[in-house]
Design a protein around this nucleic acid. Structure first.
Length: 993
DNA sequence: GCGATCAGCT
DNA sequence: CACAGCTGATCGC
């Protein structure tokens, strides 16, 4: 390693020819190894393949940054920004593909930890410019983990191009004084660590976080020494990273820090070791211990403490009390200033937002300082594509900060170079394609392409994107508003969603009067980027205004859409609190009389409905299976309800009457039943917020009461309710108003349109299916079940025929026709873990209940909580559920488990009423409603016939077509297995009537 | 048989 | 999709 830097004649200006050096290094290896292409220093290397991610390749060079997985014979010059596995991935002891340039600490780690031959590792000193293949290369500090650097590249030749690759970095103001970075102001591009490129990411400076930890530990030490007891302090860290906290703690608390031998090894390599160093492997000399990253709890998607493990460690090391610190990257708890603390018994875990990546504001500051011609996001973009929607959207965050005037020239150069240069350059593909449009296109002003881009953007907003976004947003957001959000976000769904929530949050803050300074400044940023590429950039970037007038006018014409919808939306939100809450929140308090926990209202509701329509089973408070299994479960549930009631009381006691019972319940739900956590949440929210939320909840409950009454009325005058649903489109979410038992009506009485729970043209809600399933599950007779399915299909046929096929699949527990051989590819464990997370029930509890119920669906249904979500989840529609299942089956590749879990979670969280039960059963491929093709298809066939007949003549004679149906449906059932599309034919063409 | 890559877990 | 990383299984040469 560092073979070159130590050579004596390198003092002035080191110059490296990578081919030459690489060859000689190869030759010096113990077991020489020939490069397949390179035979001499002047051998031309093959062209850079297109598969190399442009986010890792310096344009016009063969330098690859943090891309060892993409290494090949086309390059022998690789750069490693820092020693984290997602960056060094691909490096191994057998590495022979080229030289590795990195900082000295990283170099030591690469050779000692990864056993890469040191001959191939070139250590660069910080702030020393070396020449590599003619390019100027400088490494400067990245303020990430130890040894992390940013690379500065300047190309050879008179018109030098300059590129900055930040690796992973956290911006500090001091970077603006770095003489080397200063030379890269107005660089051609900055490859930016965009990990937190979203306004929702704000976190305090590292100093604040360190102060917090230091003070907390000091406090603990003082207290414990006064009491004569020793308290264990645990700090979670990575293999490399977050060392600054440890050093500061050691320095300011005057203690050494215990690490295990592995960590010690790393620290020694990094130069933190040594005999009088702060780190020790002797656990007995200090109460401050370093532990692995995930010991204190899982960190994603939100922090879940692992007190069990923590306690084990505490006991093992002979302590009575322990305080843990998890320096996480972001604030899990929305935006409050304090740092979250989780407490249980003698255990405490502090979440410290200590980030080694730049916050959103810091990213903007950095870009503003560098003022590059382009920003190339390196994190959060798909496969490193520069023109991916993510990348484009991310670049928009910096629209006012980059050197726009320079871009025009850049396009032209890119255009010329593209045709000649074999190594593909990093130019914006979208822009290039515009240039290709006409012969003289290259001469068009850049503004044309910019506005055209916006136009294209509008066109490019697909139904898919709209749907995706609407999944994220509360259901009261109109399609129009969704469209506006998408346009103003540049077509980025995620950004649109985050913009939306930002605005919502701002609105609430305004309403709450309590506006802290921080939030104000945050809000300023929001509005800045909210107007994306338009006016606001003119203020920040004077160069922008030099452009022709048409530019701004044209853009301004497009952009008001981004702002206008704000006001109506906010008003609507206010309205939603009072009008759009069809469902009752789960109320732990009211569960005394019913075994059905948390859902007494719904259960009662359902019982009432059943009683009103059919005379059967009034005692079905617990599900069928539970009955089969004996009464024990019933008792158990009442116990749970009791415990929860106690928790509520306890919580109320602790806060000394400072909150309403309803709010206590909602807090407990949030805290997953843990009183201490609930207290934590309570005390950490601002006073104003609490009362606001409390009121809000009270309001909702009143409203729910009303809604309940409404539905009762609906029940009473059930069939007289002949008003078309279309008339109340604006309350499209109030599904609970309609009668859940309508499907059980006899076929002749069922009115497919009026008795449905949704309006024509809307996607059919999954609830429709779930209700049918619930009915079918209880009903034994085949006639009745067929009737129920038939009714269900009739509504589907009448209101949203597109949902019929998905419904058939869901009914039959399939996701595709048999011959497609699709598997859901999820197992019980995934479902259980998703349940665990969304319900707040522990795995063991779920297993225990599973033993009692014998069915995961019932377990889920029983555990289901009506969580108070900030935004009520969008109701599940049949097509959503089905398409999600398809997605689940299609997901593969790295990280697939995580993606699957996200999808499953999303489904589970959106469940209403008894949807949960059947959804979970569907997920575990065990629907248990005894409905197979034999039942479903005839039912569908009946339904189709009714649909056709009803169109002309509502009074149908069943017998007239009965026999016809019979024969045909049998045929269909058989044919289905061969040609599933027949279903579609069946629905859309009048095939057989 | 080997290393590279992936799924699963933490 | 996610702040990082380990491990055992599986893939593919």
């Amino acid at each position: 390693m560092a073979s070159l830097l130590s050579s004596p004649d390198a003092s002035k200006s080191l110059s490296i020819n990578t081919s030459e050096l690489f060859l000689s290094s190869l030759a010096s290896l113990p077991s020489p190894h020939a490069h397949p292409i390179l035979t001499s220093a002047s051998t031309p290397l093959p062209p850079v393949p297109a598969a190399v991610p442009p986010t890792a390749l310096i344009p016009g060079s063969r330098f690859l940054i943090d891309a060892f997985r993409h290494a090949g014979d086309f390059s022998v010059a690789y750069f490693l920004s820092h020693f984290h596995s997602d960056h060094y991935g691909g490096l191994a002891p057998s590495w022979r593909r080229g030289l590795i340039f990195c900082s000295a600490p990283t170099a030591r780690l690469v050779s000692s930890v990864l056993s890469v031959p040191p001959q191939l590792v070139v250590a660069l000193d910080l702030g020393v410019r070396v020449t590599v293949d003619g390019w100027g290369v400088t490494a400067v500090d990245a303020n990430h983990c130890p040894g992390a650097v940013q690379f500065l590249f300047s190309s050879p030749g008179p018109n030098t191009e300059r590129y900055v690759h930040t690796g992973d970095f956290r911006y500090t103001e001091s970077m603006t004084h770095d003489p080397y970075l200063l030379e890269f102001v107005r660089a051609d591009a900055v490859f930016l660590d965009t990990t937190y490129c979203n306004p929702k990411f704000t976190f305090p400076s590292q100093e604040e976080a360190v102060d917090y930890v230091v003070n907390a530990i000091k406090h603990v030490k003082d207290e414990s020494s006064a009491a004569g007891k020793r308290v264990l302090c645990l700090i979670a860290t990575y293999v490399v990273g977050k060392e600054r906290i440890l050093l500061e703690v050691a320095r300011r608390c005057g203690c050494s820090i215990h690490v295990d031998s592995r960590k010690m090894e790393i620290l020694t390599v990094l130069g933190f070791g040594g005999e009088n160093g702060v780190f020790t492997e002797d656990a007995s000399v200090t109460d401050v211990h370093v532990i692995g990253w995930n010991v204190l709890g899982e960190t994603w998607p939100y922090f879940r403490p692992n007190f069990v493990k923590m306690k084990e460690i505490m006991v093992e090391r002979g302590y009575m009390k322990a305080v843990g610190f998890v320096p996480t990257g972001w604030m899990y708890e929305t935006k409050k200033e304090g740092f979250a603390v989780r407490v249980k018994d003698s255990l405490e875990i502090h979440l410290v937002p200590y980030s080694e990546h730049s916050s959103y504001d810091e990213l903007r500051d950095y870009v503003k300082f560098l003022h590059p011609k382009r920003v190339i996001p390196t994190v959060g973009v798909d496969a490193g594509k520069l023109d991916s929607k993510e990348a484009i959207a991310m670049q928009k965050h910096f629209s006012g900060l980059v050197d726009e005037t320079a871009n025009k020239q850049e396009f032209l150069m890119a255009f010329h170079r593209r045709s000649t240069d074999a190594t593909h350059s990093c130019k914006d593909v979208a822009k290039c394609s515009i240039l290709h449009d006409g012969e003289d296109a290259a001469l068009l002003p850049a503004i044309t392409s910019a506005s055209e881009q916006l136009d294209t953007l509008r066109e490019n907003i697909t139904e898919e994107m709209k749907k995706e976004l609407s999944d994220f947003l509360p259901s009261w957001v109109s399609e129009e508003q969704i469209m506006d959000l998408l346009i103003s976000s540049g077509g980025d769904v995620v950004k649109a969603a985050s913009d939306f929530f930002e605005r919502e949050r701002d609105f609430f803050e305004e309403a709450n009067i309590s506006c802290s300074e921080t939030l104000k400044s945050e809000k300023k940023h929001t509005s800045d980027h909210g107007s994306s590429a338009d006016g606001s950039s003119q203020q920040e970037c004077p160069l922008f205004s030099q452009k022709p007038v048409e530019h701004s006018t044209k853009l301004v014409n497009l952009t008001p859409t981004g702002k206008k919808p704000n006001t109506p939306k906010k008003e609507k939100k206010r309205g939603s609190g009072t009008t759009n809450k069809p469902k009752k929140k789960g109320r732990l308090t009211s569960s005394t009389e019913s075994g059905g926990r948390k859902q007494s209202t719904i259960t009662n509701y359902f019982i009432r409905a059943t009683a009103a329509t059919s005379k059967s089973g009034t005692a079905d408070k617990v599900t069928v299976k539970a009955h089969q299994n004996n009464v024990e479960s019933d008792d158990q549930l009442t116990d749970i309800a009791k415990t929860q009631d106690q928790s509520v009381d306890q919580l109320l006691q602790i806060v000394d009457g400072g909150m309403s019972r309803e709010y206590a319940v909602s807090l407990l739900e949030k805290a997953k039943g843990d009183v201490t956590v609930a207290v934590d949440i309570f005390y950490s929210s601002s006073e104003n917020n609490v009362t606001a939320i409390d009121k809000n909840i009270a309001l909702q409950n009143t409203q729910n009461e009303t809604t309940d009454k409404c539905s009762n009325t609906d029940l009473a005058c059930d069939s007289s309710q002949a008003t078309p649903k279309v008339s109340n489109l604006h309350v499209q979410t109030s599904l609970a108003e309609s009668d859940s038992a309508n499907v059980s009506l006899p076929i002749e009485k069922y009115l497919p349109i009026e008795h449905a729970c949704w309006a024509a043209g809307q996607p059919a809600p999954y609830l429709h299916l779930a209700r049918t399933f619930n009915l079918v599950e209880k009903e034994k007779g085949k006639i009745k079940t067929t009737a129920a399915f038939c009714n269900m299909f009739r509504s589907l046929l009448a209101l949203s025929p597109d949902d019929v096929l998905p419904a058939v699949y869901l009914c039959t527990n399939k996701i595709s026709p048999d011959h497609e051989n699709m598997e859901l590819n999820i197992g019980g464990s995934l479902v259980v873990s998703a349940l665990e997370e969304s319900l707040g029930t522990s795995r063991s509890k779920i297993h225990e209940m599973y033993k009692t119920y014998g069915d995961l669906g019932n377990v889920a249904q029983e555990c289901r909580q009506n969580q108070t979500l900030l935004a009520p989840p969008r109701p599940l529609s049949i097509r959503d559920v089905y398409s999600t299942l398809r997605k689940l089956s299609a997901i593969s590749g790295s990280g697939s488990a995580g993606r699957r879990k996200i999808l499953v979670l999303h489904l589970i969280r959106s469940c209403r009423e008894m949807e949960m039960k059947f959804l979970v059963r569907t997920l575990v491929r065990n629907l248990r409603i005894g409905a197979m093709m034999k039942t479903i298809l005839p039912a569908l066939a009946h339904a189709v016939v009714f649909d056709r007949k009803c169109a002309g003549d509502p009074v149908v004679s069943l017998e007239g077509i009965q026999s016809q149906l019979q024969s045909l449906s049998t045929g269909v059932a058989e044919a289905y297995n061969v040609i599933p599309n027949l279903i579609r034919l069946l629905v859309h063409e009048t095939l057989w009537i």
